[in-house]
Design a binder for these strands. Structure first.
Lengths: 210, 210
DNA sequence: ACCATGCCATAGCAGTGCTATAGGTTATCC
DNA sequence: GGATAACCTATAGCACTGCTATGGCATGGT
C-alpha cells in the first residue's frame, strides 16, 4: 500500500547538517558521540536514528563525505607536462590531505572493517592514481605493466607512512622524507630512470613549496 | 616513612593471567572490555586497576605482549645464505603474523596514538629488519644507503598492505601479491638486479610453501 | 475540517570505564 | 602468638556510551 498522504517529511538540510557537524566534531574533538552530536546540532538523539538508522550508518556517511573531499582535493592538482611529476603531486595531495585531517582520515581508512560497497566508494579516487600511472607508462617513462598493481603499491606505501605517523611510530618529517624516498625507489623499480624520477619528484615538491 | 611491614603483595601470576586472557579475548572476540575480562579471569574489575591502573595501561601491556610475540616470530626465521631471501622471509613473517592475529595487530599498530616509549618498544623488532638490509648492502646486493631509511620504506609498504586488507580495502590475495610486487620493485630501486631480486623473493616464497 | 503520516523530544534500557568505600588477607614486629 | 600496618579486591554507584519504546505534534492531502 502506497501512502497517499505526504505528511511531514524529513528535512534534507538536517541530514547534511548532521553529517557536516559530525565531520567537524570528529576533526575538532577527535571523537564522535551520539549525544554530543545531538546537542551540537540542537536536536535529540532520535534525529540520528530517523535519518540514518544508527551511529554506524552515520559514520558511513561521514566517511563518504571524507572520500568526497579527498577526491575533490586530488582532482584539484594541476596536470603537469611531466606525467611523473603529476603522479608525485597526487601522492603529496593524498599525504597532505591525511595529515591535515587526521581524524577524518582515521575514520576513513583505519577504523574497524568496513563493508564492501563502502570500500568501493573509497576506491573511487584510486582511479585517478591509476590513470596517472597509465599516463606515465604510455609516455614511456615506466615499463609496461598493470597500472592497477603499481597504483596499489604506491597507495600502500603512502597509506602505510601516513598510518605509522598517525599512530605515533614515525615523526612527520620521517614520514614525509620516506614518502619521497619510497616513491623514488618504486619509480626506479617501475622502470623510470633514477635521475629523471628524482627530478620529477623534486619538481613536484617545489610546486607545493616543500 | 618507609613501610616496615610487607603485607599482602600483588600476585604476579594474576597480572600475567590478565594480560594473556586479555590477548585471547581480543583475538577470539575482537573486543576487549573491562567487565568481560574481569568475568573471564574470575575476579572483579578492581584487579585491573590495582595491577595496571586502568584499561589504557592494560592495553599497553597487551601491545607489549604482541610486540614480544612478533619479535619472537621474526627472530625465528632461519638465516639464509642469500641475504635478500632472508629479508624477504622477514617481510613474509611480518605479514603472516599480522594476518594470523588481526585483532592483536590492530591493537598494536592501528589504534589511537600511542605514547613514545610504547612506540619504541614496538620498533625493537624493527632493528631486525635494519640488520637484514645492512647485510644485503654489505653483500653488494643493494647500493650503499641508509639501512634505516630503506627499512622504513619496506615497513611502510608492508604495514600499508596489511592495514588496507584489515580495513577491507584489499582482498588477502591482492595484498599478498602486492607485497611480492612492491618488494621486488623496491629492491630494484635499492640497486638489486631485477632477476636476482625475483629469484630471491621466489626462493623465500618457496620456503614458506606459498 | 479532518486525519493519516512520519519526525522528534522524553525517558529509560544495558552496556562501557572508572572510583569511593569497606572488608579481608598477610607479612612483619613486639 | 597476638597486634598491627599495609595492601588487595568485592561491592555499589558514578557519568558516559549507543539504542529504543512511547507519545505528542506538525504537516499536507483529502
Amino acid at each position: 500500500m502506497v501512502s497517499r498522504v505526504s505528511p511531514k517529511v524529513a528535512d534534507p538540510a538536517v541530514r547534511t547538517t548532521l553529517i557536516e557537524t559530525a565531520a567537524r566534531l570528529l576533526a575538532t574533538e577527535g571523537a564522535l558521540t551520539l549525544r554530543r552530536l545531538a546537542d551540537e546540532v540542537g536536536t535529540s538523539t532520535m534525529a540520528i536514528y530517523t535519518h540514518f538508522g544508527g551511529m554506524n550508518e552515520l559514520r558511513r556517511e561521514v566517511r563518504r563525505e571524507g572520500f568526497a573531499r579527498l577526491a575533490e582535493h586530488m582532482n584539484g592538482v594541476a596536470t603537469s607536462r611531466d606525467p611523473v611529476t603529476h603522479l608525485s603531486l597526487l601522492g603529496w595531495a593524498y599525504f597532505t590531505n591525511a595529515i591535515t585531517n587526521p581524524n577524518l582520515y582515521r575514520a576513513m581508512f583505519m577504523e574497524q572493517p568496513i563493508d564492501l560497497e563502502d570500500a568501493a566508494s573509497g576506491i573511487e579516487t584510486f582511479q585517478t592514481l591509476v590513470t596517472s600511472i597509465q599516463r606515465c607508462i604510455d609516455a614511456g617513462r615506466l615499463s609496461p605493466a598493470d597500472a592497477v598493481e603499481l597504483a596499489t603499491q604506491i597507495w600502500a606505501v603512502t597509506h602505510g607512512l601516513v598510518a605509522l605517523h598517525l599512530t605515533g611510530f614515525l615523526e612527520l618529517d620521517q614520514a614525509s622524507e620516506s614518502l619521497a624516498g619510497a616513491s623514488l625507489n618504486l619509480l626506479v623499480g617501475y622502470g623510470d630512470d633514477r635521475r629523471a624520477a628524482h627530478r620529477s619528484i623534486g619538481r613536484a615538491r617545489g610546486m607545493i613549496g616543500r
